[in-house]
Design a binder for these strands. Structure first.
Lengths: 345, 345
DNA sequence: CGGCTTTCTGGGATCGATCCCAGAAAGCTG
DNA sequence: CAGCTTTCTGGGATCGATCCCAGAAAGCCG
């Protein structure tokens, strides 16, 4: 009994008067064991408070029961919600969850993927920031998807979402001067993240505005890093609001950016929604209690996490080998109309 | 090379023309290895893209390099922030982080602690919901602390915090009818969580009000589960606001409860802060953008996580054996005065 | 009851990395 | 150069659970 004072299967076997093999079979419920001995082994295990050493088990079996979840930022409400939902599904399916944080950095992502690999995770849920390399285990991408890589991807329907926002501003409020503040299109290494949430949203904004037959001057497009919390957003919003010909509406590609814009507008004495309509892609926490309540897209964060986890679990069950081509699932978004767009509520 | 196609140390050794022992020493940098062979081994390892199998290493060494972090709810902003800060410290110190979610449930907590034990984590950061049993590894409690257990505890200074809130209402605004809505004092099994964040805050509220020489009718005290999100809060607030002799101020023991109270007040046409002052123990996300901005305590969530992680890392470095008595560190809180208390801003 | 399948059990090898120890090689000293 | 320490290397055992396989025990059938 050298395992840090903890009993091993050998101790259990001895206590039950059987061999390790038999004890192992009895505990795992595999192979032939007579009911009587099984009972004896179980009793011994209970008595000794035996807990199998997962490390040894995993080593022998050649794979752990751990799944890695790679997040750009656990601190953000979005990723926290995704994580929570994913974790529920994974634990229900018998997997343990190893969470790592990349701090929205490709370098950290690479390092973390490396350690996950050495921990022999059997699968991966990954929101990439550009550091992705094939880890050699079934991988489901979420939020930011590397097209064709991994066994599947789950992302928000960025295109449809931005169209909802722009159309609402144009059709229901008659705006013709709409600006956009979005997340950056590249990561800290200057590479574009893969499916490019940022780029996708920007393109979607462009085509939505174009399809509405509206002009889109270059100065109406800004991107800002979300990493610096509100500061970047404030700076970008400031530039936009100090323009000679100010936009009458702003679409924010992210909740943090929307809130930063809101703050800046206040500071500059620009009233929302009277002087400026504001809509946000992401729903800020407690959006309805904010002044003014922010019109935004309900994102179903949990749904995204759940779907991703389910895809992974399904693949692991089937013994996925990445043979079938990776497909990207799109999670739909709903417009939640509140006051910041100018709707009377 | 049977390790899922991945090279093992034996492969590296063979490629470098040395024994496994030597290869191991070269990689680990321990014991005697001549510079020349070390270089050869490293080269071979690089060439083969060797990654040590953490499972095997941990098994042999008798301990993993993983630390467990047990949270009641990853989805909550508070715990997410704590996790993020703790993770930073732990990873910097070379530990991997295993996150588990107890869903604010003693039963889940017990189950999760069990699996963490079988994964041979070397340490634990634990916010208990009552399911705690000694896991046999150095444990630092945070937020809700089991007195005397583990090697240390880090908690908010609930007493001082509530005094700040009550004193502000009494001294600066002259309130004499102050009610309290707090989190429950027991968990789902009817047991009190250990240090009893809920109980501690309630007691602190009681004595702060008592010390101010104010009466405190029993009907001014409500507790409500935070698990049901805003619903419980709304119900409790509703009861309070429909009283014949309504309180003139409410202290919420939690941000969710404050926001629920705010919603209910709106629905009932009670204006905050004109008809009702509201202060919150926890700071809601983007408290300053809420209508009205919520006066609350700045919690330094990250500080709490960082301190807890640092205490654990320190103990692990020193080879803690729980010999010295566990001490509870209190993280200070600051009052952030905003509009909901009635201050003109 | 002999022969045959099915059930049950234990011995030994195995997963991959580390550690102990013995022995070889090299370096140093008088 | 003998004698000693220090440096360096490889063989084998080890961590704890599982798996393969051989062989024993039990059950079944004509």
């Amino acid at each position: 009994m050298t395992n840090g004072g903890r009993p091993t299967i050998a101790d259990v076997a001895a206590a039950a008067g059987v061999s390790r093999s038999t004890a192992s079979r009895a505990m795992a419920g595999s192979g032939y064991v007579s009911p009587a001995t099984r009972e004896r082994v179980w009793a011994a295990a209970r008595r000794l408070a035996f807990e199998p050493n997962e490390l040894a088990r995993s080593l022998r079996v050649g794979a752990s029961s751990a799944v890695g979840v790679v997040l750009p930022d656990v601190g953000s409400a979005f990723y926290a919600a995704v994580l929570k939902a994913a974790q529920e599904v994974l634990e229900a399916a018998g997997y343990h969850v190893l969470v790592v944080n990349t701090e929205r950095t490709a370098a950290r992502e690479r390092a973390e993927l490396q350690t996950l690999r050495s921990k022999r995770v059997v699968g991966l849920l990954l929101s990439s920031y550009g550091g992705y390399e094939d880890v050699g285990v079934p991988t489901v991408f979420f939020d930011d998807v590397v097209p064709g890589a991994g066994i599947a991807g789950v992302a928000l329907d960025n295109g449809a979402g931005l169209r909802l926002l722009v159309d609402h501003l144009v059709r229901d409020h008659g705006h013709r001067h709409i600006a956009y503040i979005g997340p950056p299109e590249t990561n800290e290494e200057g590479q574009a993240p893969r499916i490019f949430v940022g780029r996708e949203r920007l393109e979607a904004f462009r085509s939505a505005v174009g399809d509405a037959g509206l002009p889109l001057p270059a100065r109406f497009i800004r991107t800002s890093d979300e990493r610096g919390f509100l500061e970047g957003a404030r700076a970008a919003a400031g530039e936009l609001l100090r323009l000679n010909e100010r936009p009458t509406a702003i679409v924010a590609g992210t909740d943090v950016l929307a809130l930063g814009t809101l703050e800046t507008a206040r500071e500059l004495g620009v009233r929302v929604p009277e002087d400026l309509a504001l809509v946000s892609f992401d729903e800020p926490p407690y959006a309805h209690l904010i002044d003014p309540p922010v019109t935004s897209l309900d994102r179903h964060d949990a749904e995204l996490g759940r779907r991703a986890a389910e895809l992974l679990v399904g693949a692991l069950r089937r013994g996925a080998d990445g043979s079938r081509p990776a497909q990207t699932v799109r999670v739909p978004l709903e417009l939640r109309v509140r006051r910041s767009c100018g709707c009377p509520l």
